[in-house]
Write a protein that binds this DNA or RNA. Structure first.
Lengths: 223, 223
DNA sequence: ACCTGAACACCGTTCAAGT
DNA sequence: ACCTGAACACCGTTCAAGT
């Protein structure tokens, strides 16, 4: 009765932060984010739930971690498509980049919703957000209009987090800090404010209006 | 010791589904959706958690319920703005409608995220989704590109749900059923498919490109 | 008809203890 | 250094029982 569990075939791979996050992504992909529990995560890894806490501080860190994993995957994928900054070709490249980002998100459908709940963002997530924003984020398959990056975290904490990233993304962080300084109430300035929202809205409305006047330009009217 | 709790001042308003949902919205507004628990909800209402189950089937029904409450609020607000269907003025009206919907969502910041998790939608939520979609949903402060309405629910269940709404929204439901029939794989056809996504994307890219060629038209370049 | 107490299975997490 | 068992506070929910 006591020797029944002695049949250990595989030599037991040790846990690690990377293994924990990889397993978490797989669970979310296969069963949805709601079924990602610490106990299930441990089970998949062949360990006990309490063992996870040696590699991650808590579940929140797991969630931050898998958000970072997906953001890296997107950044990697997107950066393989060259982006000519001059000339009219920017559109073709931007289009290809956005559609490739979309493909990654379709493999991790829980990611957009998760991003919105994050209270602290990794450099990769920050870079991703900024890229989306720079390209006109509304096109992107999920939005940040109602998302406040400092959501729940204090302004001081957010600013401190930015400072700690400054060496990795100096230009981006510099810009964000500047905006935050100019307008402390603007949710750090890089996402939603009314002006930003209306700017994107007007682009879309103007585009639709043009199709109303020139239906021949509407791609939907071609076979 | 036994009479200490006898000081009942208010005569105890009976629970009701409407009261439960109203209290739930207030909790979510004030403390966030994550702090909406059945126990806290009951506490706010001066009852025990178990009493809630007489008025709602379970927590999922509470979540469906408050999604419906917000969708109704948006539909009511929006429908007070007349929408001329002919002529170039459509843009002004559409703009006003979208911005008024946005104001409601800013009062219930948890709602966009909640909508995306709903597995069954009320007529009000359905109407809201459709309105957003018809206006070019990407402008709207949250998106459905990665949202699948039949998310988790079977196709049969979704179709049955639609049929039960047919008397309330005959034209809309008719259209959706038709699309679902034409293309059963298209997530019921009213949200994301690749064509839809690319259509919205191209409108935005074309709009940005036009501003690149004619910077004088960019509202951001005026005082 | 409406409400509740006790109980159950399940969370995330702590902490002292094992190797 | 790495892992775990027992325990705690908190969930949603059931069910038999109260008025």
């Amino acid at each position: 009765m006591a020797t029944q569990r002695a049949a250990r075939t595989e030599p037991r791979i040790p846990l690690s932060r990377a293994r924990v996050l990889q397993a978490a992504v797989t669970i979310a992909d296969e069963s949805g984010l709601e079924s990602l529990t610490m106990r299930r995560l441990a089970e998949v890894l062949g360990a006990e739930a309490m063992s996870l806490y040696y590699h991650v501080a808590n579940k929140e860190e797991v969630l931050d971690g898998i958000a970072d994993v997906v953001a890296r995957e997107i950044n990697d994928t997107v950066s393989q498509i060259d982006l000519p900054t001059k000339g009219a070709d920017w559109k073709k490249a931007a289009r290809a980049r956005i559609l490739s980002a979309r493909e990654v998100l379709l493999r991790h459908r829980w990611a957009p919703g998760l991003f919105e709940t994050r209270t602290s963002v990794s450099p990769a997530v920050l870079q991703y957000f900024h890229a989306m924003h720079a390209l006109g984020s509304r096109a992107l398959g999920f939005n940040q209009e109602l998302f406040t990056p400092s959501n729940g975290a204090s302004d001081e904490a957010s600013t401190a987090a930015l400072e700690s990233m400054a060496d990795q993304l100096p230009h981006l962080v510099g810009m964000l800090m500047e905006v935050a300084h100019d307008d402390p109430d603007s949710t750090l300035g890089w996402c939603d404010d009314q002006t930003e929202f209306e700017f994107g809205l007007d682009i879309i409305l103007d585009g639709l209006d043009r199709l109303r006047e020139r239906p021949d330009l509407d791609p939907r009217n071609r076979a």
